[in-house]
Design a binder for these strands. Structure first.
Lengths: 153, 153
DNA sequence: GCTTCATACTTGGTAATTCAAAGTTAGCAA
DNA sequence: TTGCTAACTTTGAATTACCAAGTATGAAGC
């Protein structure tokens, strides 16, 4: 139970997100959480060393991405499992962006291992930039600009 | 000039993307490239140690995200700079997803440092899941599913 | 020709992080 | 009291990151 505080000092929201998510295994643990995994032993299957898994779960809980939830199997002692919080659920676009890019530029030849669907009708959806009316815009026309919170440099 | 090969072995496209992008500083270097930075000395300003910067630039070039381009300032020797390739440009959704999440869940109180705009009319855009007709769908209804390239487990 | 300068890296030493494997803890059951 | 299981800790070696200093290249000025 060591400190492990994650400082939040950058003006850049990408850098701040990466303070939590940029550590090795963090996003893969979140991915497993989206796949319905909740328990230490289940997360372990992705190959993360157990000491790091314990440390990353602690960071993700501290960052509000996962929440500890007690559970008890019949005839077993009480234990804890880890479930996505709303902040964790909102990481789905990050995973979708990474998998979309990986499918396009680092393909395996087996097709995508993950797809994203609208659960109301099971139709596939994908990430896109949309305008204020909710209509997709040409991604080639989208640019990165400085916002109100940007510093000079 | 050492080897630095990046293996691509995972069936998961998120893991494959992270083989390149998950290394420390990689995504921040890409972010700077989107801000128009191209030169070693410019990238250095974000605080990355020079040995890592050299190593990351090499990885990003090897991954096809950046390309080396010779240039020459008047009265100076020929040098190289680093520009985004199409594969690199297509990382914009990854940055947008990370900054969107960071703005919401790790805010600074100064407003977003980065916004994304449609360059045809300068109107703000944001990332969303869209259906095949290009219409935004409720993000709470989107789920992660296994695709054709997934392995059993 | 020799020195100076700027940019783009290397190198060397140290600190921090990651890894694999083994050990620990807590409570339940036989 | 012993064994069992899931969830961690600990240990020590390997890798990676960090910082400061140094090197390489070629143009320009003297």
């Amino acid at each position: 139970m060591k400190a492990m505080a994650i400082p939040t000092n950058s003006r850049c929201s990408i850098a701040r997100s990466l303070e939590v998510l940029g550590q090795k295994w963090s996003l893969l643990i979140v991915r497993e959480a989206f796949r319905g995994r909740t328990r230490f032993a289940e997360f372990q299957k992705i190959g993360v060393p157990t000491d790091l898994l314990a440390s990353r779960l602690e960071s993700l809980v501290e960052a509000g991405i996962l929440a500890r939830r007690p559970y008890r199997e019949p005839g077993q002692r009480a234990r804890v499992e880890y479930v996505l919080t709303p902040a964790g659920e909102d990481l789905l676009p990050v995973l979708a962006a990474l998998s979309g890019w990986g499918d396009e530029y680092r393909p395996t030849g087996h097709g995508p291992a993950t797809i994203y669907v609208d659960t109301t009708d099971d139709r596939p959806v994908h990430l896109a930039f949309v305008d204020e009316d909710g209509h997709a815009v040409d991604p080639a026309k989208v640019a990165y600009r400085r916002g109100p919170g940007a510093l000079e440099d």
